[in-house]
Design a protein around this nucleic acid. Structure first.
Lengths: 138, 138
DNA sequence: TGGCAAATGATAAATCTTATTAGTTGGCAT
DNA sequence: ATGCCAACTAATAAGATTTATCATTTGCCA
Protein backbone atom coordinates (compact mmCIF):
# COMPACT_ATOMS: atom_id res chain seq x y z
CA UNK A 1 0.00 0.00 0.00
CA UNK A 2 1.06 3.52 -0.68
CA UNK A 3 1.77 5.50 2.40
CA UNK A 4 0.38 8.97 2.42
CA UNK A 5 3.08 11.50 3.16
CA UNK A 6 2.85 12.67 6.73
CA UNK A 7 1.14 15.98 7.23
CA UNK A 8 2.42 17.88 10.21
CA UNK A 9 0.17 19.95 12.39
CA UNK A 10 1.85 23.29 12.06
CA UNK A 11 0.56 26.45 13.67
CA UNK A 12 -0.02 27.97 10.25
CA UNK A 13 -2.04 25.00 9.03
CA UNK A 14 -4.22 24.91 12.14
CA UNK A 15 -4.98 28.61 12.03
CA UNK A 16 -5.76 28.58 8.31
CA UNK A 17 -8.25 25.79 8.91
CA UNK A 18 -9.74 27.48 11.99
CA UNK A 19 -10.25 30.76 10.17
CA UNK A 20 -11.77 29.04 7.16
CA UNK A 21 -14.14 27.11 9.42
CA UNK A 22 -15.27 30.33 11.10
CA UNK A 23 -16.91 31.73 8.00
CA UNK A 24 -19.79 30.59 5.84
CA UNK A 25 -18.60 32.67 2.94
CA UNK A 26 -16.31 30.98 0.47
CA UNK A 27 -13.18 33.05 0.65
CA UNK A 28 -10.48 33.24 -1.97
CA UNK A 29 -6.90 32.41 -1.03
CA UNK A 30 -6.19 36.09 -0.61
CA UNK A 31 -9.17 36.58 1.69
CA UNK A 32 -8.01 33.67 3.82
CA UNK A 33 -4.58 35.27 3.88
CA UNK A 34 -6.10 38.50 5.22
CA UNK A 35 -8.04 36.63 7.88
CA UNK A 36 -5.05 34.59 9.01
CA UNK A 37 -2.68 37.54 9.04
CA UNK A 38 -4.58 39.09 11.91
CA UNK A 39 -3.36 36.21 14.05
CA UNK A 40 -0.10 35.43 12.27
CA UNK A 41 1.13 38.70 10.80
CA UNK A 42 4.31 37.18 9.37
CA UNK A 43 2.66 34.34 7.43
CA UNK A 44 3.40 34.26 3.71
CA UNK A 45 0.80 34.17 0.98
CA UNK A 46 2.54 31.16 -0.51
CA UNK A 47 2.01 29.26 2.72
CA UNK A 48 -1.70 29.98 2.54
CA UNK A 49 -1.91 28.78 -1.06
CA UNK A 50 0.16 25.68 -0.34
CA UNK A 51 -1.89 24.67 2.67
CA UNK A 52 -5.26 25.32 1.09
CA UNK A 53 -4.17 23.18 -1.83
CA UNK A 54 -2.85 20.42 0.44
CA UNK A 55 -5.95 20.38 2.61
CA UNK A 56 -8.14 20.29 -0.46
CA UNK A 57 -6.15 17.36 -1.86
CA UNK A 58 -6.50 15.46 1.39
CA UNK A 59 -10.23 16.19 1.57
CA UNK A 60 -10.15 18.29 4.73
CA UNK A 61 -11.61 21.25 2.85
CA UNK A 62 -13.22 21.85 -0.53
CA UNK A 63 -11.66 23.77 -3.38
CA UNK A 64 -14.40 25.46 -5.40
CA UNK A 65 -13.54 26.11 -8.98
CA UNK A 66 -16.57 28.24 -9.64
CA UNK A 67 -17.08 31.15 -11.98
CA UNK A 68 -15.00 34.24 -11.58
CA UNK A 69 -11.28 34.43 -11.83
CA UNK A 70 -10.27 33.09 -8.44
CA UNK A 71 -10.54 29.76 -6.72
CA UNK A 72 -12.53 29.69 -3.51
CA UNK A 73 -12.33 27.47 -0.46
CA UNK A 74 -14.93 25.95 1.81
CA UNK A 75 -14.52 24.17 5.15
CA UNK A 76 -17.86 22.42 4.63
CA UNK A 77 -16.99 19.14 2.96
CA UNK A 78 -20.54 17.80 3.04
CA UNK A 79 -21.88 17.74 -0.54
CA UNK A 80 -23.88 20.83 -1.40
CA UNK A 81 -24.38 23.32 -4.19
CA UNK A 82 -23.56 26.98 -4.59
CA UNK A 83 -24.99 30.17 -5.96
CA UNK A 84 -22.86 33.01 -7.21
CA UNK A 85 -23.92 36.62 -7.49
CA UNK A 86 -23.37 37.84 -11.02
CA UNK A 87 -22.96 41.39 -9.73
CA UNK A 88 -20.52 41.14 -6.82
CA UNK A 89 -19.13 37.62 -7.23
CA UNK A 90 -20.15 36.49 -3.74
CA UNK A 91 -20.73 32.74 -3.36
CA UNK A 92 -23.30 31.26 -0.97
CA UNK A 93 -24.39 27.73 -0.15
CA UNK A 94 -27.72 26.65 -1.53
CA UNK A 95 -29.70 24.11 0.40
CA UNK A 96 -31.45 21.96 -2.12
CA UNK A 97 -31.20 18.17 -2.14
CA UNK A 98 -28.19 16.71 -3.87
CA UNK A 99 -29.15 14.88 -7.06
CA UNK A 100 -27.35 11.56 -6.81
CA UNK A 101 -28.85 9.93 -9.89
CA UNK A 102 -27.68 12.44 -12.45
CA UNK A 103 -24.17 11.05 -12.20
CA UNK A 104 -25.53 7.85 -13.65
CA UNK A 105 -27.27 9.74 -16.41
CA UNK A 106 -24.00 11.44 -17.21
CA UNK A 107 -22.14 8.13 -17.22
CA UNK A 108 -24.58 6.74 -19.76
CA UNK A 109 -24.33 9.86 -21.90
CA UNK A 110 -20.54 9.94 -22.14
CA UNK A 111 -17.40 7.85 -22.38
CA UNK A 112 -16.12 9.33 -19.15
CA UNK A 113 -15.78 7.53 -15.88
CA UNK A 114 -17.94 9.93 -13.90
CA UNK A 115 -16.63 10.94 -10.48
CA UNK A 116 -19.14 13.55 -9.41
CA UNK A 117 -20.82 16.80 -10.27
CA UNK A 118 -21.36 20.28 -9.01
CA UNK A 119 -24.23 22.66 -9.64
CA UNK A 120 -23.54 26.34 -9.67
CA UNK A 121 -26.50 28.68 -9.76
CA UNK A 122 -26.20 32.22 -10.95
CA UNK A 123 -28.29 35.01 -9.55
CA UNK A 124 -28.38 38.42 -7.95
CA UNK A 125 -27.92 38.52 -4.17
CA UNK A 126 -30.27 40.56 -2.02
CA UNK A 127 -27.72 43.32 -1.47
CA UNK A 128 -27.15 43.74 -5.18
CA UNK A 129 -30.91 43.63 -5.85
CA UNK A 130 -31.24 46.70 -3.65
CA UNK A 131 -28.34 48.46 -5.32
CA UNK A 132 -29.77 47.78 -8.75
CA UNK A 133 -33.13 49.26 -7.76
CA UNK A 134 -31.56 52.29 -6.07
CA UNK A 135 -28.21 53.06 -7.68
CA UNK A 136 -27.62 55.90 -5.20
CA UNK A 137 -26.66 53.21 -2.70
CA UNK A 138 -23.53 52.43 -4.68
CA UNK B 1 -35.09 52.21 -24.89
CA UNK B 2 -31.42 51.69 -24.44
CA UNK B 3 -29.57 51.33 -27.66
CA UNK B 4 -26.95 48.64 -27.69
CA UNK B 5 -23.62 50.02 -28.85
CA UNK B 6 -23.03 49.10 -32.44
CA UNK B 7 -20.87 46.06 -33.00
CA UNK B 8 -18.98 46.15 -36.23
CA UNK B 9 -18.40 43.10 -38.34
CA UNK B 10 -14.64 43.13 -38.45
CA UNK B 11 -12.59 40.46 -40.15
CA UNK B 12 -11.06 39.49 -36.83
CA UNK B 13 -14.43 39.08 -35.16
CA UNK B 14 -15.81 36.95 -37.98
CA UNK B 15 -12.82 34.65 -38.08
CA UNK B 16 -12.73 34.21 -34.30
CA UNK B 17 -16.36 33.15 -34.40
CA UNK B 18 -15.84 30.88 -37.42
CA UNK B 19 -12.92 29.10 -35.82
CA UNK B 20 -14.75 28.69 -32.53
CA UNK B 21 -17.76 27.27 -34.35
CA UNK B 22 -15.57 24.73 -36.11
CA UNK B 23 -14.65 22.84 -32.97
CA UNK B 24 -16.68 20.91 -30.44
CA UNK B 25 -13.95 21.26 -27.84
CA UNK B 26 -14.18 24.23 -25.53
CA UNK B 27 -11.00 26.11 -26.22
CA UNK B 28 -9.34 28.62 -23.94
CA UNK B 29 -8.65 32.13 -25.22
CA UNK B 30 -5.11 31.11 -26.00
CA UNK B 31 -6.23 28.08 -27.96
CA UNK B 32 -8.59 30.26 -29.99
CA UNK B 33 -5.68 32.63 -30.55
CA UNK B 34 -3.61 29.76 -31.96
CA UNK B 35 -6.44 28.67 -34.24
CA UNK B 36 -7.12 32.15 -35.53
CA UNK B 37 -3.47 33.00 -36.06
CA UNK B 38 -3.26 30.42 -38.82
CA UNK B 39 -5.57 32.63 -40.84
CA UNK B 40 -4.66 36.02 -39.40
CA UNK B 41 -1.02 35.82 -38.35
CA UNK B 42 -0.86 39.44 -37.17
CA UNK B 43 -3.86 39.32 -34.84
CA UNK B 44 -3.16 40.29 -31.25
CA UNK B 45 -4.00 38.15 -28.25
CA UNK B 46 -5.77 41.14 -26.73
CA UNK B 47 -8.09 41.28 -29.71
CA UNK B 48 -9.03 37.65 -29.17
CA UNK B 49 -9.74 38.22 -25.49
CA UNK B 50 -11.71 41.39 -26.17
CA UNK B 51 -13.88 39.80 -28.84
CA UNK B 52 -14.55 36.58 -26.95
CA UNK B 53 -15.64 38.71 -24.01
CA UNK B 54 -17.81 40.95 -26.19
CA UNK B 55 -19.44 38.05 -27.99
CA UNK B 56 -20.11 36.32 -24.70
CA UNK B 57 -21.69 39.50 -23.32
CA UNK B 58 -23.94 39.79 -26.34
CA UNK B 59 -24.92 36.13 -26.16
CA UNK B 60 -23.39 35.06 -29.46
CA UNK B 61 -21.14 32.58 -27.68
CA UNK B 62 -20.88 31.11 -24.19
CA UNK B 63 -18.16 31.85 -21.72
CA UNK B 64 -17.60 28.80 -19.52
CA UNK B 65 -16.22 29.53 -16.11
CA UNK B 66 -15.57 25.92 -15.27
CA UNK B 67 -12.91 24.35 -13.12
CA UNK B 68 -9.31 24.80 -13.98
CA UNK B 69 -7.45 28.06 -14.18
CA UNK B 70 -8.62 29.32 -17.55
CA UNK B 71 -11.91 30.44 -18.98
CA UNK B 72 -13.21 28.45 -21.92
CA UNK B 73 -15.48 29.41 -24.79
CA UNK B 74 -18.23 27.60 -26.64
CA UNK B 75 -20.03 28.52 -29.84
CA UNK B 76 -22.99 26.34 -28.85
CA UNK B 77 -25.35 28.68 -27.05
CA UNK B 78 -28.07 26.08 -26.66
CA UNK B 79 -28.33 25.17 -22.94
CA UNK B 80 -26.34 22.08 -22.08
CA UNK B 81 -24.02 20.74 -19.43
CA UNK B 82 -20.34 19.89 -19.38
CA UNK B 83 -17.97 17.27 -18.09
CA UNK B 84 -14.36 18.01 -17.30
CA UNK B 85 -11.57 15.47 -17.16
CA UNK B 86 -9.83 15.68 -13.80
CA UNK B 87 -6.64 14.38 -15.37
CA UNK B 88 -6.14 16.44 -18.51
CA UNK B 89 -8.62 19.29 -18.04
CA UNK B 90 -10.47 18.64 -21.28
CA UNK B 91 -14.11 19.77 -21.33
CA UNK B 92 -16.83 17.97 -23.29
CA UNK B 93 -20.53 18.49 -23.74
CA UNK B 94 -22.81 16.09 -21.92
CA UNK B 95 -26.15 15.32 -23.45
CA UNK B 96 -28.55 14.89 -20.58
CA UNK B 97 -31.81 16.80 -20.34
CA UNK B 98 -31.62 20.27 -18.83
CA UNK B 99 -33.27 20.40 -15.42
CA UNK B 100 -35.59 23.38 -15.68
CA UNK B 101 -37.26 23.09 -12.29
CA UNK B 102 -34.19 23.24 -10.08
CA UNK B 103 -33.92 26.96 -10.66
CA UNK B 104 -37.22 27.30 -8.82
CA UNK B 105 -35.96 25.09 -6.02
CA UNK B 106 -32.93 27.32 -5.72
CA UNK B 107 -35.07 30.44 -5.69
CA UNK B 108 -37.07 29.07 -2.79
CA UNK B 109 -33.93 28.06 -0.93
CA UNK B 110 -32.19 31.42 -1.13
CA UNK B 111 -32.65 35.16 -1.09
CA UNK B 112 -31.15 35.43 -4.55
CA UNK B 113 -32.98 36.31 -7.70
CA UNK B 114 -32.03 33.17 -9.60
CA UNK B 115 -30.94 33.63 -13.19
CA UNK B 116 -29.83 30.16 -14.16
CA UNK B 117 -27.58 27.26 -13.36
CA UNK B 118 -24.86 25.13 -14.78
CA UNK B 119 -23.90 21.56 -13.99
CA UNK B 120 -20.31 20.55 -14.31
CA UNK B 121 -19.53 16.88 -14.05
CA UNK B 122 -16.08 15.66 -13.14
CA UNK B 123 -14.66 12.44 -14.48
CA UNK B 124 -11.86 10.74 -16.31
CA UNK B 125 -12.00 10.83 -20.11
CA UNK B 126 -11.46 7.66 -22.11
CA UNK B 127 -7.94 8.67 -23.15
CA UNK B 128 -6.91 9.26 -19.56
CA UNK B 129 -8.55 6.01 -18.45
CA UNK B 130 -6.20 4.19 -20.82
CA UNK B 131 -3.19 6.13 -19.61
CA UNK B 132 -4.03 5.41 -15.98
CA UNK B 133 -4.27 1.68 -16.68
CA UNK B 134 -1.08 1.64 -18.72
CA UNK B 135 1.23 4.43 -17.55
CA UNK B 136 3.77 3.52 -20.25
CA UNK B 137 1.52 5.40 -22.66
CA UNK B 138 2.36 8.67 -21.00
C1' DT C 1 -16.08 59.82 -50.35
C1' DG C 2 -15.19 61.95 -45.83
C1' DG C 3 -15.68 61.71 -41.07
C1' DC C 4 -15.57 59.49 -36.87
C1' DA C 5 -16.59 56.14 -33.44
C1' DA C 6 -15.21 51.67 -32.85
C1' DA C 7 -11.71 48.36 -33.32
C1' DT C 8 -7.00 46.77 -33.83
C1' DG C 9 -2.05 45.51 -32.72
C1' DA C 10 1.56 46.27 -29.78
C1' DT C 11 2.83 46.73 -25.41
C1' DA C 12 2.63 47.37 -20.54
C1' DA C 13 0.56 46.37 -16.41
C1' DA C 14 -2.38 43.99 -13.26
C1' DT C 15 -3.88 39.85 -11.14
C1' DC C 16 -3.62 35.30 -9.54
C1' DT C 17 -0.90 31.22 -8.70
C1' DT C 18 3.18 28.35 -8.47
C1' DA C 19 8.16 27.51 -7.92
C1' DT C 20 12.61 28.23 -5.59
C1' DT C 21 15.50 28.38 -1.69
C1' DA C 22 17.80 29.19 2.60
C1' DG C 23 16.55 28.78 7.05
C1' DT C 24 13.10 26.84 10.74
C1' DT C 25 10.30 23.43 13.19
C1' DG C 26 7.25 19.39 14.50
C1' DG C 27 7.52 14.92 15.87
C1' DC C 28 9.81 10.53 16.15
C1' DA C 29 13.73 7.62 17.87
C1' DT C 30 16.73 7.37 20.80
C1' DA D 1 14.65 15.29 27.50
C1' DT D 2 17.52 15.85 23.12
C1' DG D 3 19.02 15.43 18.51
C1' DC D 4 17.91 14.45 13.95
C1' DC D 5 15.75 15.21 9.64
C1' DA D 6 12.02 15.46 6.51
C1' DA D 7 8.48 18.58 6.18
C1' DC D 8 7.53 23.17 6.47
C1' DT D 9 7.87 28.28 6.33
C1' DA D 10 8.78 33.18 4.74
C1' DA D 11 10.55 35.73 1.28
C1' DT D 12 11.09 36.26 -3.19
C1' DA D 13 11.05 35.43 -8.02
C1' DA D 14 8.87 33.68 -11.80
C1' DG D 15 5.01 31.92 -14.52
C1' DA D 16 0.46 32.13 -16.32
C1' DT D 17 -3.65 34.41 -17.42
C1' DT D 18 -6.22 38.48 -18.16
C1' DT D 19 -7.00 43.43 -18.61
C1' DA D 20 -5.65 48.24 -19.70
C1' DT D 21 -3.44 51.80 -22.57
C1' DC D 22 -2.78 54.17 -26.73
C1' DA D 23 -1.42 55.50 -31.34
C1' DT D 24 -3.08 53.90 -35.66
C1' DT D 25 -6.39 51.72 -38.69
C1' DT D 26 -10.99 50.49 -40.38
C1' DG D 27 -16.03 49.62 -40.91
C1' DC D 28 -19.97 52.06 -41.82
C1' DC D 29 -23.16 55.81 -42.21
C1' DA D 30 -24.31 60.39 -44.11
Amino acid sequence: MDQLPSMRLTTQRQIILEELAKVTSHPTANEVYDMVRKRLPRIGLGTVYRNLELMADSGVILKLEVGGTQKRFDATVYPHYHIRCSQCGKVDDINIPVQPNINDAAAVASSYEVIGHHIEFTGVCSDCQLHLKDPSLN
